[in-house]
Design a protein around this nucleic acid. Structure first.
Lengths: 340, 340
DNA sequence: TTGTATGCGTTATCAC
DNA sequence: GTGATAACGCATACAA
């Protein structure tokens, strides 16, 4: 104990804590303590410290899938970049709860989720965290933040990308290029990420005063065929936007149909993707659309979590996406059909 | 406190510790405690637990550079894949100490390194961890494992790739293809990773009974020029191996010289790389050489660390690399120079 | 087999 | 300003 080295005792705490809080300490003893600590390489035991202080500067990160999957494409890496930076900036260390990746079935969940309380608060990644598991945390007041919009649980904090604004912006871009009839290709899925995009799409249409509608590419009622595509084109549609999903299904279907119809973007038709293209898809040409600032999302999540932990007012949960001009959209061309 | 839920008190410790140590426990009360813990989502405070001189199932991960750098190419991701899997398999959670990435200068080191003791043991990544900082941990008996060979500190545990065997294997492969004179292109650096490769190279030469020597590509005495390359070829050298480094300097220099000499591999000369090619280099053709099994290295590090924490005998610290046939080496061709 | 006391190293609250 | 002292939550040896 450094006390022996110096002449003081738990005064050490004060000088090491370095809080200008209330009282002050003489420069002499302060230096004495500092020197002694340096000499002995003394560092306050973090365990004891957190025991006494009721918080341990630890932020949890929990995902039900492996945090570092073998397949990099599925990884949370881009988010983690921001998470780590922001946590470091705020003096928090990260606890990665691995209970999730045990893979095996069985009693993983209860034990694993319980461990989470070890941290001052916890960040949850991935779409598959059971709502009722999270409910316990929020009702007990344990600080929890979900990365990705999550509306079904009252009181659950989350951060998410502002798909509405970003989608609106894409539509505005197309409208500015002269497109007056735009179709949204989406999947038959009611996830917030999908509905947000459609909402932004429709808001964009309204604001620009252009026409358009949404089509569900995997609706059993009808596939997205080249024939259907041609039909739309004959009806005055000159641009298509597709939503981004895990699988990229809508975008793939759109590209396939365009290709099957013998059309090319942006010459024959303008295409846009409400998100980033799937990694396995050749990003050539780069689709018009927007990028999700994943690191910034991670950072925002940490900011929010830190606020909850500290009892401060919560910051803005929506993070803006960045517009990507791309090369699949351009001014409207009137080739086959006559002008109005 | 779970005591209220159950009928017991600190018996909780016993059942939760689950030590088959000596004797004790009744199935009835055990279940009662277990149920209560489940109900309340109770988890022993890791701080209190480690204070009370136990362990907290936490393994630290510390790097002086950011664990998740913005530039993925510098990242520890491949190692972390193995680290996470192995830690999960053994029931450990991971603490990522971010003190490293604070970036700022100043008093980061003492505070940051001290926090590490919150975990049961710590894994250190990166080449830049100061020896004297680590020394304290090993002398104090705090379990520490360094990812990467580290010989200068007695008693410091580490795991590393077996560059010696892997390099020897590459040489053996070349020799088996008929090459009888092989040059090693290395950088002017005395890192273990470099000396190990040269040692393996020389052992390989000796075993195969072939000739060869090492050349330092960045030695001020002489650059690796096309002219020098031609000189070697005229002297009967038919194959070159280059070491892998952070920058890939040796391999780049070798490729540049070969190209400048108007030669092509494997037709005119055989090339091999003692490691993996730099990510920014077109991996076409894939160089003959070996791959470092980074996930396996991470897993091995966790295994070793877990052994230290548990006081068990330490497992093998060397991880085997995997030979990569590649397409830059082949049977020896005698084109310009006469046969012997 | 289970309940009862003690101490781990800090912080925080008081008297000095 | 500085020196005691009570928790903090758990493990552990010990008594019941």
């Amino acid at each position: 104990m450094a006390r022996l080295a110096g002449v003081s005792q738990a005064t050490v705490s004060l000088v090491l804590a370095n809080k200008q809080n209330g009282v002050v300490i003489s420069d002499e003893t302060r230096q004495k303590v500092l020197d002694a600590a340096q000499e002995l390489g003394y560092v306050p035991d973090p365990a004891a410290r957190s025991l006494a202080a009721a918080h341990n500067n630890l932020l949890g990160v929990f995902s039900f899938t492996s945090t570092f999957p073998t397949d990099v494409r599925h990884s949370y890496y881009p988010f983690l970049v921001g998470v780590e930076q922001e946590a470091a900036a705020r003096g928090y260390d990260l606890v990665l709860f691995t209970g999730s990746s045990s893979g095996g079935a069985g009693a993983q969940a209860p034990e694993a989720l319980g461990r989470v309380r070890l941290a001052d608060g916890c960040l949850f990644l991935g779409r598959h965290i059971p709502t009722d598991q999270l409910r316990r945390f929020v009702t007990e007041g344990f600080p929890v933040v979900h990365l990705g919009r999550r509306d079904e649980l009252e009181g659950l904090s989350w951060v998410g990308a502002d798909y509405v604004s970003a989608s609106r912006e894409v539509v505005a871009h197309l409208a500015a290029s002269g497109h007056e009839r735009i179709m949204l290709i989406r999947e038959n899925d009611e996830a917030p990420a999908s509905t947000d995009r459609e909402r932004g799409f429709r808001e964009g249409l309204a604001e620009a005063g252009v026409d358009g509608d949404a089509f569900r590419s995997d609706d059993p009622a009808g596939q997205l065929t080249a024939q259907r595509l041609r039909g739309w084109l004959d009806n005055g549609v000159t641009a298509f936007v597709a939503e981004e999903t895990d699988t990229g299904g809508a975008w793939r279907a759109l590209c396939a149909a365009v290709s099957a119809a013998g059309l090319r973007a942006p010459d024959d038709v303008s295409l846009a993707l409400l998100g980033s293209p799937p990694a396995d898809l050749a990003a050539d040409p780069v689709p018009t659309g927007f990028d999700i600032p994943r690191p910034e999302l991670g950072a925002a999540a940490v900011r929010l979590l830190a606020s909850l932990v500290a009892g401060e007012p919560a910051p803005e949960p929506l993070v803006a996406c960045t517009f990507r001009p791309g090369a699949t959209s351009g001014p409207v061309h009137r080739t086959s059909q006559g002008d109005s």
